[in-house]
Design a protein around this nucleic acid. Structure first.
Lengths: 220, 220
DNA sequence: ACCTGAACACCGTTCAAGT
DNA sequence: ACCTGAACACCGTTCAAGT
């Protein structure tokens, strides 16, 4: 379980009946749509409620204020991405280092880029209000999962693992974010993804003890 | 000269007298301060005007609406960053490839991280309203400057230059952005910067024609 | 338990009046 | 040429009334 959110951002109450669940789902979906319109300052509770097909009062039954809605939306989405990346990392414990990197970049890339629209909406909402704590928690989860995977790598020293975690994650997070926001043609994205994997792999190989290269040589 | 901005975002009029120039400066400064408060949705014209020590009416004399103010602020700042990077790129035409990379990363890093507060404010304003065109123009300027520098590199083939431009800039932009927003301790930042330069240099070296390594070997 | 929508305070924007 | 601040429309949020 991630840490509880601060009281002022907590959802006001949980839906109990089925139609209430549907209402909350509709509000989330509407929020994403509205966030993706040109001017994010048009993200008004009125707009969201209207698009969700409920009255403002209903929205305020579940979310104490606009920021709480944005917070819940980001939390929901970032949690899912973290789940996916954690699973992939866990599945690659003990794998050859280059496979680890490929898996990590791939998992994060897919989670973000495949739902490009949601990712962009969340990036927007994340700056529209202050979500530093939320993002920090997200980064922590991925950092922990990554480091624990890397620590299981054959031939990677402890200092090598530390150094690499410092640079690897900012590079991956940052590059993927750039792709989400620029949203270039598919071919360019594919090239960037390939190059990113290559870049990170090279970076990792520089940290391996000499003998450990063998684990890789057997592949291509 | 960069391309003209769309009519609806143009500043309403230019200050002519000295006190008017001071007024506009004060508005920019106040806007940055307000953008840096916890909740960016509190970026209200009332707040900005109050902090700048002028009345709302004055603000609206120069900026037709809130978004135009944000746009002008970003434009002003991004223009300065692009100027700096372009100058550094121009100064390194014909330099050894690894010096080029170091200079490029360094120039971009310094421009962003040294004025961390302004950079964060601009990142916020850039998503608060739709600034896709502004950002695209900024990227284009830096891409052009970078490619023209790299084309002058001894031993770099044309396809090598293209491939590297595709990956190099997203990685640098993305990583620096992560650092601006996380704002980790100085030591961590220094390490990330060092590693980023190393990463990009390695990436570049992989594209050089064999003989060209000599240009580097003579350094360390 | 859930939903509604009128009501109030506040912010974006305008404009008539001032120096 | 520049500045002011009251005025109007609209959005965030509440709450009394409904099923």
């Amino acid at each position: 379980m991630p840490p509880r959110e601060p009281a002022h951002l907590k959802p006001r109450k949980q839906p109990r009946q089925a139609r209430a669940v549907a209402t909350v789902e509709a509000i989330y979906e509407a929020a994403i749509q509205v966030l993706l319109t040109r001017d994010a300052s048009q993200f008004t509770t009125t707009q969201v409620a209207e698009r969700a097909g409920v009255s403002v009062g209903t929205l305020y039954q579940y979310f104490p204020h606009r920021r709480a809605l944005l917070h819940a939306l980001s939390r929901h989405y970032l949690g899912r991405v973290a789940d996916q990346v954690e699973a992939v990392c866990a599945a690659h414990h003990g794998a050859p280092p280059d496979r680890m990197v490929e898996a990590l970049v791939g998992a994060y890339w897919d989670a973000k880029i495949d739902r490009n629209d949601v990712a962009r909406a969340v990036y927007r909402s994340a700056v529209a209000f202050d979500s530093a704590a939320l993002m920090a928690g997200f980064r922590d989860r991925l950092t922990t999962a990554t480091r624990s995977m890397l620590q299981s790598a054959p031939g990677l020293t402890k200092t090598g693992e530390e150094a690499i975690s410092t640079i690897l994650l900012p590079v991956i997070f940052g590059t993927v974010r750039e792709m989400c926001e620029q949203d270039p043609p598919g071919l360019v994205k594919a090239e960037v993804r390939r190059e990113l994997v290559a870049l990170c792999t090279t970076c990792l190989e520089g940290r391996l003890r000499p003998g450990a290269f063998d684990a890789r040589a057997s592949r291509d």
